[in-house]
């Protein structure tokens, strides 16, 4: 398909990328392109300038700190996570990345791209909210740190402002995690997904696909009744489409929350 005319640059440093992004209101960062190139075909997005982050080495890689915190560069691909010995410190990361689309997409698609596109059906926004990740955002005026639960602002909108870049994702240590979804076909787009973490004392649940941003719930305990009560009291008002009615999505949210919590409980 023929895209609208666009300008392209592939800077080698974050500073250079920020300069290019700041120089034009119509500039957008290009990560793996597995969403952006497609929406450009559909003309749902028509950036004037693409700033390709592929050559910025500091945006790639996975490091395991001495306290067990994982530091993941925004340009790290799903395949990098799946194949990384370090990332196994938080096993749910690789498990969920391995459920995204297919080999080709996992080879190009990035952690940063997944969260910055913030499609409500994406896997990683609810996962990173549930496991308490923290994002590092860099702009001309310096660097700031945003917890995942404050990062997602709306459909396709995040705390990364114009001219800014997500550079790193920090994931705290933990193993008591679960993820459950009903996708359209194996490893397809999620109809509803739920991530759960039982590591930080009170359980944390994040439900995806039912609102503009992941819905974070903190049930009183990991008992079934408490989980059900938490989902019901959230009064979810999910969208409906050809794949599922709003009622069915509400139903799935409850069922998948129980499954995600059960998986997490089996690992604590």
């Amino acid at each position: 398909m023929l895209l609208r005319e666009v300008e392209y640059a592939r800077p080698a440093s974050v500073q250079e990328a920020l300069r290019l992004l700041g120089a034009n209101d119509g500039a957008r960062a290009l990560a793996g392109g597995q969403t952006l190139i497609n929406v450009m075909k559909a003309r749902a997005a028509s950036p004037d300038v693409l700033v390709d982050l592929a050559d910025i080495g500091e945006l790639r890689g996975i490091e395991l700190g001495s306290d067990g915190t994982l530091e993941i560069g925004a340009m790290t691909t799903y395949s990098d996570i799946i194949g990384s010995a370090e990332a196994r410190a938080r096993p749910i990361l690789g498990e969920v990345c391995n459920q995204i689309a297919d080999v080709q997409v996992r080879n190009r698609g990035t952690m940063g791209g997944n969260v910055c596109s913030n499609d409500p059906t994406n896997h990683l926004p609810p996962l990173l909210v549930a496991i308490g990740a923290t994002m590092t955002i860099v702009g001309q005026n310096g660097e700031r740190s945003v917890p995942a639960e404050e990062f997602f602002l709306g459909v396709y909108m995040t705390a990364v402002g114009p001219g800014e870049l997500l550079t790193k994702i920090f994931v705290p240590p933990g193993k008591g995690d679960g993820f459950a979804s009903v996708p359209i076909g194996k490893d397809g787009t999620c109809i509803v997904n739920v991530a759960a973490s039982l590591d930080g004392g009170a359980p944390r649940l994040a439900i995806g696909c039912v609102d503009a941003v992941p819905v974070l719930l903190r049930p009183d305990s990991a008992e079934d009744d408490a989980v059900r009560a938490a989902v019901r009291s959230a009064n979810l008002d999910p969208p409906w489409d050809v794949h599922a009615s709003a009622d069915y999505r509400r139903h799935l949210a409850e069922v998948l929350a129980l499954r995600a919590v059960a998986q997490a409980a089996g690992r604590t």
Binding site: N38, Q104, V105, N107, R108
Partner: peptide
Amino acid sequence: GACSVLLDGTLVKSCMMLAVQAD
């Protein structure tokens, strides 16, 4: 996936990349 090629040994869909990205 009909457009799949290997790029530096990695399987990719060549309709979801720009040619300039393959420079």
